[in-house]
């Protein structure tokens, strides 16, 4: 046994049990704590107008967003986000299941869809303003259109890739159309649908912010820009922080949903890798 191997075995022994747990926790929290502490102390007493001390930002957070604004700005933004996202999900998955199942419809629509997807979703905002003004509808529709493409295209791919033997099995045992949709199509394409939904979610957040910054009288994005224009630095920074937290929370919720709905998929892949 070589020296390095001895060291490795010793380390493995140390890593098992409590030491391993401590190391795991440390790995998760160490860098974030270092970063936050560094920010805190390096910005403390900052004279740079654009970069106020983190302490001020944190102090500004609560009064800026949790006294009134949460009901007038924050929650409406979040509802619009979720509303648009939900619409995109329903249309994307429904249409995707249809196009994914039909070679004819897929071939017919593919080039047009490729083009529509390639349009940066934010340029839809000026167009939709023509139709819907700058109200809530415009923003919901923008979010829905932007989030639609990744969901739709991934669903098509996923439905197309459903195993042929599984399709045959569903036909042989004469599953009803409803059961075919829910048990075969939806679940069979779910890994790709989830991938599309994850991409769609980040597009939706971007569009929520941009639509409010571009033209609106309310919402998180609008409020942050208002702070920027009035040079209310700690408040503006607290808004950036809020958007960051929103992004993180939504992605955590999504992860939870993913780990539940795709439990079978991760297990399946694990068993294929382990190879029996």
């Amino acid at each position: 046994m070589s020296a390095t191997e001895l060291v490795r075995t010793a380390r493995m022994k140390r890593d098992s049990g409590i030491g391993k747990q401590v190391r795991k926790v440390l790995a998760v929290v160490a860098l974030p704590i270092v970063l936050i502490v560094t920010w805190w102390f390096s910005s403390a007493g900052s004279q740079n107008f654009f970069f106020p001390p983190l302490e001020q930002i944190v102090t500004a957070f609560q009064p800026t967003w949790f006294t009134g604004a949460i009901e007038t700005e924050v929650l409406p933004s979040v509802w619009r986000l979720l509303g648009g996202y939900l619409v995109a999900g329903v249309i994307g998955i429904g249409l995707g299941a249809l196009l994914g199942s039909s070679p004819v419809l897929r071939a017919f629509t593919e080039p047009a869809l490729e083009f529509l997807r390639a349009i940066p979703p934010t340029v839809m905002i000026p167009i939709l303003i023509l139709f819907l003004g700058i109200g809530a509808e415009m923003r919901v529709v923008v979010i829905a259109i932007g989030a639609l493409w990744p969901i739709l295209l991934n669903t098509i791919e996923g439905v197309r890739a459903i195993d042929e033997v599984l399709r045959d099995t569903a036909r042989v045992y004469r599953l009803t159309p409803m059961m075919r949709f829910s048990t075969l199509i939806l679940r069979g394409a779910s890994p790709q649908i989830v991938t599309g939904a994850r991409q769609g979610l980040s597009v939706a957040i971007i569009l929520m912010v941009i639509s409010e910054m571009f033209a609106a009288q309310d919402g998180i994005g609008f409020t942050i820009i208002r702070f920027q224009k009035s040079y209310a630095m700690p408040e503006m920074w607290s808004g950036i922080l809020l958007l960051g937290v929103l992004g993180i929370v939504l992605s955590l919720i999504f992860k939870l949903f993913e780990s539940i709905s795709l439990k079978w998929y991760f297990g399946l892949r694990q068993s294929q890798r382990g190879g029996n």
Binding site: D163, V165, L166, D168, T169, Y173, L175, M179
Partner: peptide, 30 residues
């Protein structure tokens, strides 16, 4: 109606997102 098929590719003919019992019960549910 009333025709069952057992395929060679067993791993591909069972629904990986359903439990064993759900797989067996699925045609009955239909």
């Amino acid at each position: 109606k009333g025709m069952a098929v057992v395929f060679q590719e067993y791993a591909r003919s069972l629904f990986p997102w359903l439990t064993i019992a759900q797989n067996v019960a699925l045609p009955l549910k239909a």
